[in-house]
Design a protein around this nucleic acid. Structure first.
Lengths: 258, 258
DNA sequence: GCAACTTTGTGCGTGCGTTCACAAGCGGCT
DNA sequence: AGCCGCTTGTGAACGCACGCACAAAGTTGC
């Protein structure tokens, strides 16, 4: 009569499936793909969920459920055929064609990112570099000319950039982000320690290196509470710090806490 | 009804509280701390949870709950006093004394990390650099001598290193990790695209740049399924995606787990 | 001093993500 | 050919995290 319930499976194909993949699973699927690539180089034909889970450090059941989101390509009693699975993962993750990347900010971090081979080798060629520093605009990095950020709208559109990376200082990030968005970039990876305001249809991922270290520092502190006196730790008292050579300088020297 | 508030509050102190802070909250606490530092520079004395939540892109209730994990230092009807809150956050996150960082691998990415000011400025001085490349061992970066990785156990212990950063190629990462662990390092931040095997008492956080891009590529692919034919560059996007529009925040703030 | 307003702190319902456990399916062995 | 063992795929329970909504507590104005 109305909706044939069986038709959900075949006809819809990947479209409906992709939209329903949980965000956490997407991150792991990318991890599986890289690991499978290494296994493939080592000549593996098939791999079981237990093996792949052990290598990637993931629960086997979770891995199987993740793979089920992109369709069932495993063989019961055997495992997964590596090559077909790699192909399916690449297609589901949108890696079947290369994604041009624009990198804004070629200072300390950006310069390294521009030369990082891990991007180009995985289908993300950095095709445009931008900065505002007159000393940087005009130079070549890895054979790519650094252009002025004001050229972002034109060049990004010309070269079909789909992903933008922001490696500028924090204060400049929002303006750069706006330029990228105006150029039609819908996905942005930022290293700037600010919250970017973007339209709802633009996806932003943030990598905050200082926050990563602070999270680790928290674990150090927690351990020292458990095992005091292990290393250089002293708990209370005048352990004050964090302030001197800093652009933040936020040590309130008032003892509010006994 | 009268609530007996004379509960178990003072005696527990921070020890029990720290252990119970959810991992996701710890990541956000670090974010609040940085934002508060900026607000403090701008002369703010107090800040309400709504204001701070707006700047950091977090739900106000979630923010208040996060802060409640480290103790209640807000004033009802007013907000939070910035300086005491900063101090409390620093103490809870273990930032009241500097954490020496060792960086292994001063190639492309590592070189940038060594010169990145964001670490030293936030209480994480990079105090030791290591590599295996004879062309790199012996040079100075930011005034720090690059030593051979075989010196890791001795130098890391000497300089009280508590955090290790690994920016080596993937194949070398595990060996470097073992050296750091043998030197007593309990927290490791790795950029190598491999799963590190460590003892249970060592904390590892992984930042995988290629995976980050692949996650973004997935979102590009998903959008292209919605709008086939829309390549890029169509400047004015009325690209309303699906009507879903769940107010999933713009900030990924993803926890990158090991 | 009292009332009205503001903001914190938190109990609770809801939804997502993870994990367990098991049925279904496939290949190899006899 | 048929049985056995192995592995996938998934239903269901568990746990965590998020966000709403409200009471408690403090401030401002009269």
């Amino acid at each position: 009569m109305t909706v044939p319930p069986e038709a959900e499976r075949e006809g819809v194909g990947d479209v409906a499936r992709l939209r329903s993949i949980p965000e956490a699973s997407v991150a792991r699927l990318a991890l599986y793909l890289r690991t499978l690539g290494e296994l493939s180089e080592q000549g593996a034909e098939t791999v079981s969920s237990d093996e792949l889970a052990a290598v990637t450090g993931v629960n086997p059941a979770k891995l199987r459920k993740d793979l089920s989101f992109i369709g069932s390509y495993g063989i019961r009693g055997v495992g997964y055929e590596v090559r077909p699975l790699v192909h399916q993962l690449e297609q589901s993750l949108g890696l079947n064609h290369r994604q041009a990347v624009a990198l804004v900010g070629v200072g300390n971090l950006g310069h390294a990112l521009a030369g990082y081979g891990g991007f180009d080798g995985r289908g993300f060629p950095v095709t445009a570099l931008f900065d505002v520093d007159p000393d940087l605009v005009g130079i070549h990095i890895n054979g790519i000319l650094v252009e002025h950020v004001r050229e972002i709208p034109r060049i990004a559109a010309e070269r079909g950039v789909t992903i933008g990376m922001i490696a500028t200082p924090g204060p400049a990030a929002q303006a750069v982000c706006d330029l990228l968005v105006s150029a039609g970039v819908q996905c942005i990876l930022t290293f700037a320690p600010v919250v970017l305001q973007v339209p709802a249809d633009v996806e932003v991922r943030k990598v905050d290196l200082a926050v990563e270290l602070q999270i680790l520092a928290f674990h150090v502190a927690r351990r020292n509470l458990d095992h005091p006196g292990v290393t250089t730790g002293t708990t209370n008292g005048h352990a004050l710090v964090n302030g001197a050579a800093d652009n933040r300088t936020v040590n309130g020297s008032g003892g509010i806490h006994s």
